[in-house]
Design a binder for these strands. Structure first.
Lengths: 150, 150
DNA sequence: CTTGAAAAAAAGTGCCC
DNA sequence: GGGCACTTTTTTTCAAG
């Protein structure tokens, strides 16, 4: 993990569709060396995956909401029981258990308010272990990135 | 935008490193046809970018925190004045203005608590327009994806 | 043990139907 | 949407620092 590896990670986080030769050129490396480094970074698990990022508005998922959930019983088992099903909910893109008075925070991506209504019925109102939940709708997205500097 | 286009989007959101021929095979399409669709989806802006997703823990950004900020004056100008500088903060990966009693919610990715301390001093304590801020540290990540079903 | 150069294999491009 | 010749890129191999 030297400076070159870190640069590669930053470049690929910005644009992973660049060709190996192109990257190598920018880094002042031979294409084969650059490739070997990228492969190493993938094998070591630092690069988790290469994905396409879509424009949410253009694929009809323009509404973002954040929900803070307080559970009635917050032990490990109850927490797990609440979190596990969220993995199968396509509209839930992030779900965390957190410190503080709130137990769980989740980020939702929805088509419209009706979809929020249906989902919150299912996830919060119908769950006897949900003591309270607060929804914050996103008005404006100031920043949203997958980039973490290394 | 037919069913095939939607399938392509879902596949590329999961793994954008697959070859065109591979995708075409799975879709029962000729490589050239598949390629034409992908190019169309990029040109139309539905596919915004192709990026590498890193493992935060392995690149020393293991700590996640969510901060809810209430501003003293919440008019458009003050809001902008608070949000704009966040774009230049590498540790801030998401920042939204939201509905409700909180004005801004942001997601931070940090190396350690010290980094949080430094950052919160700079962003919140030194800003006279920040009335109150609450920090929720992420204990467990139950789900975290860039995938939005289409 | 890492790098660079060159050849072989694979994938992507563009134009035709 | 499919087919095909052409170009670019990736992968492998191997020699050198």
């Amino acid at each position: 993990m030297d400076r070159i590896d870190r640069t590669i990670l930053n470049l690929l986080q910005t644009d992973a569709s660049r060709t190996n030769a192109d990257l190598a050129g920018e880094l002042g490396l031979a294409p084969s060396s650059c490739m070997r480094r990228i492969r190493r970074l993938k094998a070591s698990g630092m690069i988790e995956r290469i994905v396409a990022i879509l424009n949410p508005a253009k694929v009809n998922r323009g509404i973002k909401a954040m929900v803070m959930v307080e559970l009635e019983r917050h032990g490990e088992t109850w927490m797990r029981r609440f979190l596990e099903p969220l993995k199968d909910e396509p509209s839930v893109v992030q779900a965390y258990s957190v410190s503080g008075s709130t137990d769980v925070v989740m980020m939702l991506r929805l088509k419209d308010i009706e979809e929020f209504d249906t989902l919150s019925d299912r996830l919060f109102r119908d769950d006897a272990n949900v003591a309270r939940y607060t929804t914050l709708f996103v008005i404006r997205t100031a920043k949203e990135t997958t980039f973490v500097p290394v």
